[in-house]
C-alpha cells in the first residue's frame, strides 16, 4: 500500500455543552489570576490524528462513536486531509 492511499483525519473531542469541564474551569481560573480577564470560558478536549489506509470517513465516524469519544459526555468533529 503506497502512501498515496493514506489519508489523515484530525479528530477534535470536546466536552459536551452543559457538561462540567473541571480542567477548563481550572485553566479559566488560572488565566484570570494572570490578569487575562477577557477570557469568558475555557473548554479542554482531545486532539487525535488518525492515519488511515483507504480512508473512509464513514468508518472514522464509526470509530469515534464506538471508542474515541463517549457521546454521553463528549462531542467530536472530524477534519480530513488527503494524504
Amino acid at each position: 500500500m503506497s502512501e498515496a492511499d493514506q489519508r489523515r483525519f484530525s479528530i477534535f473531542v470536546s466536552p459536551l455543552r452543559g457538561v462540567l469541564d473541571p480542567q477548563g474551569q481550572a485553566a479559566l481560573g488560572a488565566l484570570h489570576s494572570l490578569g487575562y480577564d477577557e477570557v469568558e470560558d475555557v473548554r479542554i478536549g482531545k486532539y487525535i490524528v488518525l492515519t488511515v489506509r483507504g480512508g473512509s470517513e464513514e468508518r472514522v465516524r464509526e470509530m469515534c462513536e464506538k471508542l474515541l469519544a463517549n457521546p454521553i459526555i463528549e462531542d467530536y468533529r472530524i477534519e480530513s486531509e488527503s494524504g
Binding site: V19, A26, I73
Partner: peptide, 16 residues
Amino acid sequence: LEAGLLPGAMLRNNSL
C-alpha cells in the same frame, strides 16, 4: 459505565 451495563459516565474529580 463505558460498556453501557450501567447508565451515565465519569468525569474528572471537580478538584482535579
